[in-house]
Design a protein around this nucleic acid. Structure first.
Lengths: 364, 364
DNA sequence: TCGCTTTAGTAAAGCGCTACAGTAGATATA
DNA sequence: TATATCTACTGTAGCGCTTTACTAAAGCGA
């Protein structure tokens, strides 16, 4: 019995020792250690952390930097965040969509944000409910700002008041409704399709069809508008028969069928502008199935410039969204709010560009 | 002079008032406020925050919850992180690659992590240097764990010692080199291509070509191995002439040329297995350019199951990586380390599956 | 020399939590 | 009845920083 107790005692002792040494091993070096080692106060060290070199002599600065380097010091951002109420973190709320577009955009945003010293906290939202949750979670994480990448089909945005109340700067990318007080970046879809349509007209096409998305979505309505504006400008009639639509639940089969319908019209359209690259690819499948050639019989243009475009047969002419620029501007806008304390809302509209490949017949 | 002073005085007074009221307005409600309002100590409130309801009576719990709800309390995760040394944040380091594969994977990881109460801090790394930086930054952000999504071509992984030293759990997805002490998830590329090859053999193909990736990459070597193993098992000869390669700098033009070379062989191969879907798409372009039909003259199989596969003409048969499962397992592995304190390394190999569409000729 | 400003710092009060050591009172145990 | 154990808490140190207020010493013109 006694032996057992003794054994236990030593075992505990030993465990304590281990625990202590482990804690020692993993003990992080803090600002205090740096201050001590450099022979200055922690305030001075804090000043170098916060990039205020004119608060001290050059020697002091260099000594502190050297000590930091030597001790491999990493400031604890939790502590910084707690004390300063700034976290150098931006939340990105991404709507779940079929196309990898927004994820791609995310990959453009990250390096730009990082360069400015910010990190990205990601949140995938596929409904308004999720967006509400996103705000809640990301606010609790004390993000300095938010970027929303959305498919713009929410009607009730009451949950955004929360943002205003919490004074979290937010920028909305591709959101249909504009929200007072928030920054917005939208794409000139209409201009993009206008360019594409004009390009086809210049190539001699007179009967241009359009596979359009739902009008309830900004993109659907705007792309149709661009199609019409180009026709109009060039004195071509807008013909309902040449326009087929599908909503966001439309299956490939639906688009295939729509394309068949277009191809059976007489006179047959000589070109099809699809609402996006996937629809364009399906249309191409249908055109081949109908025994026709691309672009000789029917030219095809897509939208989104997805990465598979060049590898379709023939390579797809498409409208390109300015994703890198969008990412850059999104970060800029939110940082202007955070750092430069801008309070007036900005609305940025970015142009799309036409990427000409073989499917429109311009390059043989 | 006196008037000026008085004016100044009042102006200051007023500014102070404003400042105070503004601070009041934006003042966050803290655990202290909740404790006060509920008539308990902050420890008790902390206990409900940390999900320890058996430390108090049901009434107390409910009262606290009610007060929290009423005051719209949100715990400050910076403070929690500082005090507990846990942040409920996982860092995800994504290698930049051409395909949207890893970004897609990210979108699977996020909801699973969130469900477990974790958020994702994203970092895009395109080189070893960046990975080092990622570890530095994410460690400073005090992430509880790390997930690496990589293209597995690093030779010097010395910077990973850092992770070990900092005791940050990490799981590597698709990394060629295994690192002692870390968890790994790899895909059975070989098995996937083996299945695809076997499928073609079953369909009657005797001369199956392979457009392979670089052997320096795990995927290149493994996919080739799968191709060979299936041939061997079915008693078909492995023929060098039917295998063309390209490294990771290979252009579409290179693959197009390689496909032409394969098509000019006699006897001509009746099927081509491409190293990925993009290469498959290029091969399809080349087959059409050569005036041949798919799949009647040449069957084609891809790899990756990218989202455009169904929309190629004909729809592409391809090998599918288990992305959702990969995401789930990655989160699981890292949480086992964080929460369940697992210390032994695990290595998970996940199977690929064959997705049969029209391009292999199985479905007419 | 005096009085003022500037320079180069320091000291300490938090930020909002967690974690751990207590404790009062009720209940069970010998 | 005395003691141990349990329940339902409380009090507070401290996590690693930032920030505000303060100061000693040097510089400087008159």
């Amino acid at each position: 019995m006694q032996d057992k107790a003794v054994t236990d005692h030593f075992q505990n002792e030993w465990q304590n020792l281990m625990a202590r040494s482990q804690r020692q091993a993993t003990k992080r070096v803090t600002i205090k250690d740096i201050a001590q080692a450099a022979g200055v106060s922690i305030t001075t060290v804090s000043n170098v952390l916060n990039n205020r070199p004119d608060e001290m002599t050059k020697q002091t600065l260099e000594r502190i930097l050297a000590v930091m380097d030597e001790l491999d010091y990493r400031p604890n951002s939790m502590a910084r965040g707690l004390a300063s109420r700034r976290t150098s973190t931006i939340g990105v709320v991404i709507a779940e969509i079929e196309t990898p577009l927004f994820l791609q955009l995310l990959s453009f945003i990250e390096p730009i944000a990082r360069e400015a010293g910010y990190n990205l906290l990601m949140f995938k939202a596929h409904a308004m409910e999720d967006e509400k949750q996103a705000i809640k979670v990301l606010a609790a994480k004390q993000v300095d700002g938010l970027i929303f990448l959305s498919v713009s089909q929410y009607t009730d945005d009451a949950h955004l008041d929360e943002l205003q109340r919490l004074e979290i700067p937010a920028v909305f990318v591709n959101r249909a409704q504009l929200h007072d007080g928030f920054d917005h970046i939208n794409w000139d879809d209409a201009g993009g399709v206008d360019q594409a349509t004009e390009h086809l007209i210049r190539l001699g096409h007179q009967r241009i069809a359009h596979l359009r998305g739902p009008l309830s979505r900004q993109s659907g309505a705007n792309r149709l508008a661009g199609y019409r504006s180009a026709l109009e400008r060039h004195g071509l009639p807008y013909n309902d028969r040449y326009v087929r639509s599908g909503d966001y639940t439309a299956t490939p089969e639906h688009w295939r069928q729509s394309t068949f319908e277009l191809l059976e019209l007489s006179p047959r359209p000589t070109a099809i502008i699809a609402s996006d690259d996937i629809v364009a690819a399906v249309a191409m499948q249908a055109i081949y199935q109908a025994g026709l050639r691309i672009p000789q019989d029917v030219a095809v243009v897509g939208f989104d410039n997805q990465h598979f475009g060049p590898y379709l047969h023939p390579a797809l002419t498409t409208v390109c969204l300015p994703l890198p620029e969008t990412g850059r501007r999104a970060v800029e806008l939110v940082l202007e709010r955070i750092v430069a304390q801008r309070t007036t809302a900005k609305h940025v509209k970015l142009p799309c560009s036409l990427i000409v490949r073989a499917s429109c017949g311009a390059t043989a």
